[in-house]
Write a protein that binds this DNA or RNA. Structure first.
Lengths: 207, 207
DNA sequence: ATTGACTTATGACACTGTGTCACATTATAA
DNA sequence: TTATAATGTGACACAGTGTCATAAGTCAAT
Protein backbone atom coordinates (compact mmCIF):
# COMPACT_ATOMS: atom_id res chain seq x y z
CA UNK A 1 0.00 0.00 0.00
CA UNK A 2 1.50 3.33 -1.01
CA UNK A 3 2.61 5.60 1.79
CA UNK A 4 0.70 8.74 2.70
CA UNK A 5 3.38 10.81 1.00
CA UNK A 6 2.62 9.36 -2.38
CA UNK A 7 -1.10 10.03 -2.13
CA UNK A 8 -0.40 13.68 -1.30
CA UNK A 9 1.79 14.12 -4.33
CA UNK A 10 0.64 16.48 -7.08
CA UNK A 11 -1.41 14.69 -9.72
CA UNK A 12 1.27 14.98 -12.40
CA UNK A 13 4.01 13.40 -10.38
CA UNK A 14 1.79 10.50 -9.38
CA UNK A 15 0.84 9.96 -13.00
CA UNK A 16 4.46 9.97 -14.13
CA UNK A 17 5.37 7.28 -11.64
CA UNK A 18 2.29 5.19 -12.33
CA UNK A 19 2.82 5.42 -16.06
CA UNK A 20 6.46 4.46 -15.75
CA UNK A 21 5.48 1.54 -13.55
CA UNK A 22 2.85 0.33 -16.01
CA UNK A 23 5.45 0.52 -18.75
CA UNK A 24 7.99 -1.51 -16.82
CA UNK A 25 5.47 -4.10 -15.62
CA UNK A 26 4.25 -4.43 -19.19
CA UNK A 27 7.77 -5.00 -20.41
CA UNK A 28 8.62 -7.89 -18.08
CA UNK A 29 6.98 -9.86 -15.27
CA UNK A 30 7.16 -8.59 -11.72
CA UNK A 31 10.27 -10.50 -10.69
CA UNK A 32 12.26 -9.17 -13.63
CA UNK A 33 11.08 -5.59 -13.34
CA UNK A 34 13.55 -3.15 -11.88
CA UNK A 35 12.98 -0.08 -9.79
CA UNK A 36 15.92 1.50 -11.57
CA UNK A 37 14.00 1.46 -14.85
CA UNK A 38 10.86 2.85 -13.31
CA UNK A 39 12.51 5.81 -11.61
CA UNK A 40 14.66 6.57 -14.62
CA UNK A 41 11.57 6.68 -16.79
CA UNK A 42 9.54 8.65 -14.27
CA UNK A 43 12.44 11.01 -13.68
CA UNK A 44 12.48 10.73 -9.92
CA UNK A 45 15.44 9.89 -7.70
CA UNK A 46 15.83 6.55 -6.07
CA UNK A 47 15.35 7.84 -2.55
CA UNK A 48 12.01 9.32 -3.45
CA UNK A 49 10.68 6.02 -4.65
CA UNK A 50 11.15 4.62 -1.19
CA UNK A 51 9.31 7.61 0.26
CA UNK A 52 6.28 6.57 -1.74
CA UNK A 53 6.29 2.77 -1.68
CA UNK A 54 7.71 0.04 0.49
CA UNK A 55 9.22 -1.72 -2.48
CA UNK A 56 8.54 -3.00 -5.97
CA UNK A 57 5.79 -5.36 -4.84
CA UNK A 58 3.99 -2.59 -3.02
CA UNK A 59 3.78 -0.56 -6.20
CA UNK A 60 2.88 -3.55 -8.31
CA UNK A 61 0.00 -4.72 -6.18
CA UNK A 62 -1.30 -1.20 -5.85
CA UNK A 63 -1.49 -1.04 -9.62
CA UNK A 64 -2.98 -4.48 -10.01
CA UNK A 65 -5.57 -3.71 -7.41
CA UNK A 66 -6.64 -0.60 -9.24
CA UNK A 67 -7.04 -2.44 -12.51
CA UNK A 68 -8.99 -5.16 -10.78
CA UNK A 69 -11.38 -2.79 -9.14
CA UNK A 70 -12.50 -1.35 -12.46
CA UNK A 71 -12.91 -4.84 -13.71
CA UNK A 72 -14.84 -6.08 -10.73
CA UNK A 73 -17.28 -3.25 -11.20
CA UNK A 74 -17.94 -4.36 -14.75
CA UNK A 75 -18.55 -7.93 -13.68
CA UNK A 76 -20.82 -6.88 -10.85
CA UNK A 77 -22.79 -4.87 -13.39
CA UNK A 78 -23.14 -7.94 -15.59
CA UNK A 79 -24.49 -9.93 -12.68
CA UNK A 80 -27.04 -7.22 -11.97
CA UNK A 81 -27.99 -7.16 -15.64
CA UNK A 82 -28.72 -10.89 -15.47
CA UNK A 83 -30.80 -10.45 -12.32
CA UNK A 84 -28.42 -12.36 -10.13
CA UNK A 85 -28.06 -15.44 -12.31
CA UNK A 86 -24.50 -16.21 -11.20
CA UNK A 87 -23.86 -19.23 -13.39
CA UNK A 88 -25.45 -17.52 -16.38
CA UNK A 89 -23.11 -14.57 -15.98
CA UNK A 90 -19.93 -16.61 -15.99
CA UNK A 91 -19.47 -17.04 -19.72
CA UNK A 92 -19.89 -13.35 -20.39
CA UNK A 93 -17.56 -12.47 -17.57
CA UNK A 94 -14.97 -14.92 -18.84
CA UNK A 95 -15.26 -13.60 -22.36
CA UNK A 96 -14.76 -10.10 -21.05
CA UNK A 97 -11.70 -11.04 -19.08
CA UNK A 98 -9.93 -12.78 -21.92
CA UNK A 99 -10.67 -9.83 -24.17
CA UNK A 100 -8.48 -7.75 -21.85
CA UNK A 101 -5.34 -9.43 -23.07
CA UNK A 102 -5.53 -7.40 -26.28
CA UNK A 103 -6.15 -4.14 -24.49
CA UNK A 104 -3.29 -1.82 -25.54
CA UNK A 105 -3.18 -0.11 -22.15
CA UNK A 106 -2.93 -3.13 -19.84
CA UNK A 107 -2.81 -6.20 -22.04
CA UNK A 108 0.86 -6.93 -21.58
CA UNK A 109 0.74 -6.30 -17.89
CA UNK A 110 -2.08 -8.81 -17.55
CA UNK A 111 -0.26 -11.24 -19.75
CA UNK A 112 2.68 -11.24 -17.39
CA UNK A 113 0.38 -11.34 -14.40
CA UNK A 114 -1.44 -14.46 -15.57
CA UNK A 115 1.65 -16.22 -16.82
CA UNK A 116 3.09 -15.77 -13.35
CA UNK A 117 -0.08 -16.08 -11.36
CA UNK A 118 0.31 -16.80 -7.69
CA UNK A 119 -1.85 -16.71 -4.62
CA UNK A 120 -1.32 -13.06 -3.84
CA UNK A 121 -2.08 -11.90 -7.37
CA UNK A 122 -5.14 -14.08 -7.54
CA UNK A 123 -6.33 -12.69 -4.27
CA UNK A 124 -5.66 -9.12 -5.33
CA UNK A 125 -7.58 -9.60 -8.52
CA UNK A 126 -10.46 -11.45 -6.91
CA UNK A 127 -10.94 -9.23 -3.91
CA UNK A 128 -10.01 -5.64 -3.36
CA UNK A 129 -7.16 -5.69 -0.95
CA UNK A 130 -6.79 -2.06 -0.11
CA UNK A 131 -10.46 -1.45 0.37
CA UNK A 132 -11.34 -1.30 4.04
CA UNK A 133 -14.91 -2.39 3.52
CA UNK A 134 -13.93 -5.71 2.08
CA UNK A 135 -16.55 -7.67 3.94
CA UNK A 136 -19.27 -5.17 3.11
CA UNK A 137 -18.31 -5.13 -0.55
CA UNK A 138 -18.31 -8.86 -0.64
CA UNK A 139 -21.68 -9.17 0.90
CA UNK A 140 -23.07 -6.48 -1.40
CA UNK A 141 -22.06 -8.57 -4.36
CA UNK A 142 -23.26 -11.64 -2.55
CA UNK A 143 -26.67 -10.08 -2.07
CA UNK A 144 -26.97 -9.69 -5.82
CA UNK A 145 -26.89 -13.42 -6.37
CA UNK A 146 -30.28 -15.01 -6.83
CA UNK A 147 -29.89 -18.26 -4.95
CA UNK A 148 -33.07 -19.73 -6.39
CA UNK A 149 -31.06 -20.72 -9.44
CA UNK A 150 -28.65 -22.66 -7.27
CA UNK A 151 -28.70 -26.13 -5.85
CA UNK A 152 -27.73 -25.12 -2.32
CA UNK A 153 -29.24 -25.36 1.12
CA UNK A 154 -27.72 -22.33 2.85
CA UNK A 155 -25.69 -19.15 2.54
CA UNK A 156 -22.54 -20.99 3.47
CA UNK A 157 -22.79 -23.15 0.40
CA UNK A 158 -23.08 -20.07 -1.77
CA UNK A 159 -19.62 -19.05 -0.56
CA UNK A 160 -18.32 -22.44 -1.53
CA UNK A 161 -19.89 -22.13 -4.96
CA UNK A 162 -18.13 -18.82 -5.42
CA UNK A 163 -14.85 -20.44 -4.48
CA UNK A 164 -15.48 -23.26 -6.91
CA UNK A 165 -16.30 -21.08 -9.88
CA UNK A 166 -13.47 -18.73 -8.92
CA UNK A 167 -10.94 -21.53 -8.91
CA UNK A 168 -12.14 -22.88 -12.25
CA UNK A 169 -12.32 -19.47 -13.85
CA UNK A 170 -8.82 -18.53 -12.76
CA UNK A 171 -7.46 -21.86 -13.82
CA UNK A 172 -8.91 -21.36 -17.27
CA UNK A 173 -7.64 -17.80 -17.50
CA UNK A 174 -4.13 -18.93 -16.73
CA UNK A 175 -4.40 -21.58 -19.44
CA UNK A 176 -5.50 -18.94 -21.91
CA UNK A 177 -2.56 -16.67 -21.20
CA UNK A 178 0.07 -19.37 -20.81
CA UNK A 179 -0.90 -21.32 -23.92
CA UNK A 180 -2.11 -18.42 -26.01
CA UNK A 181 -5.42 -20.11 -26.68
CA UNK A 182 -7.68 -18.61 -29.26
CA UNK A 183 -10.86 -17.04 -28.00
CA UNK A 184 -12.88 -19.95 -29.42
CA UNK A 185 -10.77 -22.64 -27.76
CA UNK A 186 -10.77 -20.80 -24.47
CA UNK A 187 -14.52 -20.36 -24.39
CA UNK A 188 -15.19 -23.88 -25.57
CA UNK A 189 -13.11 -25.28 -22.71
CA UNK A 190 -14.63 -22.97 -20.18
CA UNK A 191 -18.26 -23.54 -21.08
CA UNK A 192 -17.71 -27.29 -21.16
CA UNK A 193 -16.36 -27.18 -17.65
CA UNK A 194 -19.05 -24.87 -16.35
CA UNK A 195 -21.71 -27.07 -17.91
CA UNK A 196 -20.21 -30.10 -16.24
CA UNK A 197 -20.33 -28.58 -12.78
CA UNK A 198 -23.78 -27.14 -13.38
CA UNK A 199 -25.28 -30.51 -14.16
CA UNK A 200 -23.04 -32.40 -11.70
CA UNK A 201 -20.07 -34.67 -12.18
CA UNK A 202 -21.65 -37.69 -10.61
CA UNK A 203 -23.89 -39.97 -12.64
CA UNK A 204 -27.22 -40.55 -10.96
CA UNK A 205 -28.20 -44.14 -10.51
CA UNK A 206 -31.56 -43.53 -12.18
CA UNK A 207 -30.13 -42.28 -15.46
CA UNK B 1 16.68 -30.16 -15.76
CA UNK B 2 20.08 -31.01 -14.35
CA UNK B 3 22.95 -31.29 -16.78
CA UNK B 4 24.48 -34.61 -17.71
CA UNK B 5 27.48 -33.81 -15.52
CA UNK B 6 25.38 -33.78 -12.40
CA UNK B 7 23.82 -37.14 -13.11
CA UNK B 8 27.27 -38.68 -13.58
CA UNK B 9 28.47 -37.39 -10.24
CA UNK B 10 29.30 -39.90 -7.51
CA UNK B 11 26.31 -40.66 -5.31
CA UNK B 12 27.71 -38.86 -2.28
CA UNK B 13 28.33 -35.58 -4.03
CA UNK B 14 24.85 -35.59 -5.51
CA UNK B 15 23.36 -36.27 -2.10
CA UNK B 16 25.32 -33.47 -0.49
CA UNK B 17 24.04 -30.97 -3.02
CA UNK B 18 20.47 -32.24 -2.92
CA UNK B 19 20.45 -32.22 0.86
CA UNK B 20 21.82 -28.70 0.99
CA UNK B 21 19.21 -27.61 -1.52
CA UNK B 22 16.38 -29.17 0.48
CA UNK B 23 17.67 -27.40 3.54
CA UNK B 24 17.78 -24.01 1.84
CA UNK B 25 14.40 -24.40 0.13
CA UNK B 26 12.94 -25.45 3.47
CA UNK B 27 14.35 -22.35 5.12
CA UNK B 28 12.85 -19.81 2.72
CA UNK B 29 10.70 -19.76 -0.42
CA UNK B 30 12.33 -20.12 -3.81
CA UNK B 31 12.75 -16.43 -4.54
CA UNK B 32 14.57 -15.82 -1.26
CA UNK B 33 16.79 -18.88 -1.47
CA UNK B 34 20.38 -18.23 -2.40
CA UNK B 35 22.81 -20.36 -4.33
CA UNK B 36 25.54 -19.06 -2.04
CA UNK B 37 23.92 -20.80 0.93
CA UNK B 38 23.43 -24.04 -0.92
CA UNK B 39 26.99 -24.35 -2.15
CA UNK B 40 28.42 -23.29 1.18
CA UNK B 41 26.41 -26.00 2.89
CA UNK B 42 27.18 -28.61 0.26
CA UNK B 43 30.84 -27.64 0.24
CA UNK B 44 31.15 -27.19 -3.50
CA UNK B 45 32.53 -24.18 -5.33
CA UNK B 46 30.29 -21.74 -7.13
CA UNK B 47 31.53 -22.66 -10.59
CA UNK B 48 30.66 -26.30 -10.04
CA UNK B 49 27.07 -25.49 -9.29
CA UNK B 50 26.70 -24.05 -12.74
CA UNK B 51 28.22 -27.19 -14.21
CA UNK B 52 25.36 -29.14 -12.72
CA UNK B 53 22.34 -26.88 -13.05
CA UNK B 54 21.26 -23.97 -15.20
CA UNK B 55 20.33 -21.93 -12.19
CA UNK B 56 18.43 -21.94 -8.91
CA UNK B 57 15.08 -22.68 -10.58
CA UNK B 58 16.50 -25.64 -12.42
CA UNK B 59 17.56 -27.23 -9.17
CA UNK B 60 14.35 -26.31 -7.41
CA UNK B 61 12.03 -27.78 -9.99
CA UNK B 62 14.15 -30.89 -10.25
CA UNK B 63 13.64 -31.40 -6.53
CA UNK B 64 9.95 -30.57 -6.59
CA UNK B 65 9.40 -32.92 -9.48
CA UNK B 66 11.01 -35.77 -7.59
CA UNK B 67 8.86 -35.22 -4.54
CA UNK B 68 5.77 -35.04 -6.71
CA UNK B 69 6.49 -38.25 -8.49
CA UNK B 70 6.52 -40.23 -5.26
CA UNK B 71 3.32 -38.58 -4.32
CA UNK B 72 1.62 -39.18 -7.61
CA UNK B 73 2.38 -42.85 -7.28
CA UNK B 74 0.60 -42.97 -3.95
CA UNK B 75 -2.44 -41.26 -5.35
CA UNK B 76 -2.55 -43.49 -8.39
CA UNK B 77 -2.45 -46.43 -6.01
CA UNK B 78 -5.42 -45.04 -4.10
CA UNK B 79 -7.38 -44.72 -7.30
CA UNK B 80 -6.63 -48.34 -8.15
CA UNK B 81 -7.64 -49.38 -4.66
CA UNK B 82 -11.02 -47.74 -5.19
CA UNK B 83 -11.45 -49.45 -8.55
CA UNK B 84 -11.28 -46.25 -10.53
CA UNK B 85 -13.82 -44.27 -8.54
CA UNK B 86 -12.23 -40.88 -9.21
CA UNK B 87 -14.57 -38.74 -7.17
CA UNK B 88 -14.53 -41.21 -4.33
CA UNK B 89 -10.76 -41.08 -4.18
CA UNK B 90 -10.54 -37.32 -3.89
CA UNK B 91 -11.12 -36.96 -0.17
CA UNK B 92 -8.50 -39.55 0.71
CA UNK B 93 -6.04 -38.00 -1.71
CA UNK B 94 -6.66 -34.56 -0.27
CA UNK B 95 -6.25 -35.85 3.26
CA UNK B 96 -3.00 -37.44 2.29
CA UNK B 97 -1.69 -34.27 0.70
CA UNK B 98 -2.42 -32.02 3.63
CA UNK B 99 -0.81 -34.51 5.95
CA UNK B 100 2.44 -33.84 4.11
CA UNK B 101 2.77 -30.41 5.63
CA UNK B 102 3.85 -31.99 8.91
CA UNK B 103 6.35 -34.29 7.29
CA UNK B 104 9.72 -33.46 8.89
CA UNK B 105 11.63 -34.14 5.69
CA UNK B 106 9.68 -32.00 3.22
CA UNK B 107 6.99 -30.23 5.19
CA UNK B 108 8.62 -26.83 5.19
CA UNK B 109 9.56 -27.05 1.56
CA UNK B 110 5.96 -27.80 0.66
CA UNK B 111 4.76 -25.02 2.92
CA UNK B 112 6.81 -22.53 0.98
CA UNK B 113 5.80 -24.10 -2.30
CA UNK B 114 2.07 -23.79 -1.62
CA UNK B 115 2.29 -20.35 -0.09
CA UNK B 116 3.97 -19.22 -3.28
CA UNK B 117 2.15 -21.44 -5.70
CA UNK B 118 2.31 -20.45 -9.32
CA UNK B 119 1.54 -22.02 -12.64
CA UNK B 120 4.87 -23.71 -13.08
CA UNK B 121 4.88 -25.24 -9.61
CA UNK B 122 1.32 -26.42 -10.02
CA UNK B 123 2.20 -27.98 -13.32
CA UNK B 124 5.30 -29.63 -11.92
CA UNK B 125 3.36 -31.11 -9.05
CA UNK B 126 0.42 -32.21 -11.16
CA UNK B 127 2.33 -33.70 -14.03
CA UNK B 128 5.84 -35.02 -14.18
CA UNK B 129 7.83 -32.57 -16.20
CA UNK B 130 11.06 -34.41 -16.69
CA UNK B 131 9.45 -37.69 -17.56
CA UNK B 132 9.61 -38.31 -21.29
CA UNK B 133 6.58 -40.53 -21.30
CA UNK B 134 4.30 -37.81 -20.03
CA UNK B 135 1.47 -38.61 -22.37
CA UNK B 136 1.74 -42.32 -21.68
CA UNK B 137 1.78 -41.79 -17.95
CA UNK B 138 -1.22 -39.57 -18.17
CA UNK B 139 -3.19 -41.98 -20.21
CA UNK B 140 -2.21 -44.86 -17.97
CA UNK B 141 -3.74 -43.02 -15.05
CA UNK B 142 -6.63 -42.03 -17.25
CA UNK B 143 -7.32 -45.63 -18.08
CA UNK B 144 -7.69 -46.38 -14.40
CA UNK B 145 -10.72 -44.14 -14.09
CA UNK B 146 -14.02 -45.93 -14.23
CA UNK B 147 -16.16 -43.56 -16.27
CA UNK B 148 -19.38 -45.32 -15.40
CA UNK B 149 -19.43 -43.34 -12.15
CA UNK B 150 -19.26 -40.11 -14.10
CA UNK B 151 -21.86 -37.98 -15.77
CA UNK B 152 -19.99 -37.56 -19.06
CA UNK B 153 -20.60 -38.39 -22.66
CA UNK B 154 -17.05 -38.85 -23.97
CA UNK B 155 -13.37 -39.16 -23.15
CA UNK B 156 -12.88 -35.46 -23.79
CA UNK B 157 -15.18 -34.59 -20.92
CA UNK B 158 -13.17 -36.80 -18.60
CA UNK B 159 -10.17 -34.57 -19.26
CA UNK B 160 -12.25 -31.57 -18.35
CA UNK B 161 -13.39 -33.24 -15.16
CA UNK B 162 -9.79 -33.84 -14.24
CA UNK B 163 -9.03 -30.19 -14.82
CA UNK B 164 -11.97 -29.18 -12.68
CA UNK B 165 -11.11 -31.34 -9.72
CA UNK B 166 -7.46 -30.41 -10.14
CA UNK B 167 -8.23 -26.72 -9.98
CA UNK B 168 -10.46 -27.09 -6.95
CA UNK B 169 -8.07 -29.38 -5.15
CA UNK B 170 -5.10 -27.08 -5.68
CA UNK B 171 -7.12 -24.07 -4.68
CA UNK B 172 -8.05 -25.77 -1.43
CA UNK B 173 -4.50 -26.90 -0.79
CA UNK B 174 -3.25 -23.36 -1.15
CA UNK B 175 -5.89 -22.18 1.31
CA UNK B 176 -4.77 -24.80 3.79
CA UNK B 177 -1.14 -23.75 3.66
CA UNK B 178 -1.71 -20.00 3.44
CA UNK B 179 -4.26 -19.84 6.24
CA UNK B 180 -2.93 -22.69 8.36
CA UNK B 181 -6.30 -24.38 8.44
CA UNK B 182 -6.79 -27.26 10.78
CA UNK B 183 -7.21 -30.64 9.21
CA UNK B 184 -10.91 -30.62 10.11
CA UNK B 185 -11.61 -27.21 8.58
CA UNK B 186 -9.69 -28.09 5.46
CA UNK B 187 -11.50 -31.34 4.90
CA UNK B 188 -14.89 -29.86 5.72
CA UNK B 189 -14.40 -27.17 3.08
CA UNK B 190 -13.09 -29.58 0.55
CA UNK B 191 -15.78 -32.21 0.90
CA UNK B 192 -18.49 -29.55 0.79
CA UNK B 193 -17.12 -28.29 -2.49
CA UNK B 194 -16.65 -31.72 -3.98
CA UNK B 195 -20.18 -32.66 -2.95
CA UNK B 196 -21.50 -29.53 -4.61
CA UNK B 197 -19.89 -30.30 -7.94
CA UNK B 198 -20.84 -33.95 -7.70
CA UNK B 199 -24.51 -33.20 -7.38
CA UNK B 200 -24.39 -30.11 -9.64
CA UNK B 201 -24.51 -26.40 -8.92
CA UNK B 202 -27.64 -25.76 -10.90
CA UNK B 203 -31.04 -26.33 -9.35
CA UNK B 204 -33.22 -28.51 -11.48
CA UNK B 205 -36.63 -27.10 -12.33
CA UNK B 206 -38.36 -30.24 -11.05
CA UNK B 207 -36.98 -30.01 -7.52
C1' DA C 1 54.98 -43.55 -19.69
C1' DT C 2 53.66 -39.77 -22.67
C1' DT C 3 50.83 -37.24 -25.35
C1' DG C 4 46.73 -35.03 -26.70
C1' DA C 5 41.77 -34.32 -26.48
C1' DC C 6 38.21 -33.92 -23.80
C1' DT C 7 35.69 -33.36 -19.52
C1' DT C 8 35.23 -31.37 -15.05
C1' DA C 9 36.60 -28.12 -11.17
C1' DT C 10 37.51 -23.65 -9.30
C1' DG C 11 37.07 -18.99 -7.40
C1' DA C 12 37.98 -14.24 -8.60
C1' DC C 13 35.48 -10.93 -10.92
C1' DA C 14 32.29 -7.90 -13.29
C1' DC C 15 27.80 -6.73 -13.08
C1' DT C 16 23.04 -5.79 -11.66
C1' DG C 17 20.00 -4.27 -8.53
C1' DT C 18 18.37 -3.24 -3.78
C1' DG C 19 17.40 -0.45 0.38
C1' DT C 20 19.44 3.07 3.52
C1' DC C 21 21.17 7.14 5.42
C1' DA C 22 23.14 11.60 6.16
C1' DC C 23 22.30 15.71 4.42
C1' DA C 24 19.67 19.28 1.54
C1' DT C 25 15.52 21.50 0.47
C1' DT C 26 10.88 22.92 1.08
C1' DA C 27 6.56 23.61 3.59
C1' DT C 28 4.03 24.88 7.80
C1' DA C 29 2.88 27.23 11.74
C1' DA C 30 3.93 29.99 15.82
C1' DT D 1 11.64 35.17 11.31
C1' DT D 2 12.55 31.12 13.10
C1' DA D 3 11.69 26.54 14.65
C1' DT D 4 9.83 22.12 13.41
C1' DA D 5 8.30 18.79 10.59
C1' DA D 6 7.85 16.76 6.08
C1' DT D 7 9.88 15.61 1.81
C1' DG D 8 13.68 15.17 -1.63
C1' DT D 9 18.19 13.32 -3.03
C1' DG D 10 21.94 10.38 -4.64
C1' DA D 11 26.12 8.18 -3.03
C1' DC D 12 26.99 4.02 -0.93
C1' DA D 13 27.19 -0.49 1.31
C1' DC D 14 25.61 -4.74 0.57
C1' DA D 15 23.91 -9.11 -1.44
C1' DG D 16 23.62 -12.06 -4.94
C1' DT D 17 24.20 -13.74 -9.80
C1' DG D 18 26.47 -15.86 -13.81
C1' DT D 19 30.91 -16.06 -16.39
C1' DC D 20 35.45 -16.98 -17.68
C1' DA D 21 40.28 -17.98 -17.72
C1' DT D 22 42.82 -21.25 -15.86
C1' DA D 23 43.78 -25.61 -13.29
C1' DA D 24 43.09 -30.38 -12.58
C1' DG D 25 41.56 -34.81 -13.82
C1' DT D 26 40.34 -38.80 -17.13
C1' DC D 27 41.29 -41.87 -20.60
C1' DA D 28 42.36 -43.87 -25.01
C1' DA D 29 45.95 -44.35 -28.40
C1' DT D 30 50.53 -44.59 -29.27
Amino acid sequence: MPKQTFLQLPEGKQRALIDAAKKEFSRVPLHEASIANIIKDAGIPRGSFYQYFEDKEDLYYYLLNQLSQENNKKITAMLKEKNGDLLGTLEDAFRHMISLRHDPEHGELLNHAFRNMNYRKENTMANSMYKESLKNERSQTLELVDTSYLNIKDKQELLHIIKIVGAITFHNLVQVFVHDLTEEEAIANYTTQIDLIKRGLHRNEDM
